[in-house]
């Protein structure tokens, strides 16, 4: 359902901390555990803007463990 490919995801990092991002369980956001932020994916477009990110309820709660 998400049009974001693995190669691109591997190259994306959090714009705040420059640490890797993980796809959320619902697949609708990219989670930066280090910054405690979830960046939305709107209609297939990852929106990697600090002002568009939502803080995580508790760190790590949406992360898929690979």
């Amino acid at each position: 359902m998400i049009a974001i490919d693995g190669a691109l995801l591997a190259d994306l990092v959090c714009p705040v901390t420059r640490t890797p991002l993980t796809l959320s369980a619902a697949g609708d956001s990219l989670v930066s555990a280090a910054a405690g932020l979830a960046f939305p994916i709107c209609d297939g477009v990852p929106v990697l803007l600090v002002e568009a990110a939502k803080p995580l309820a508790s760190p790590g709660d949406q992360i898929i463990i690979p």
Partner: peptide, 8 residues
């Protein structure tokens, strides 16, 4: 943003 690039 160009000055907050999210690429490894």
């Amino acid at each position: 943003d160009e000055d907050r690039l999210p690429f490894a």
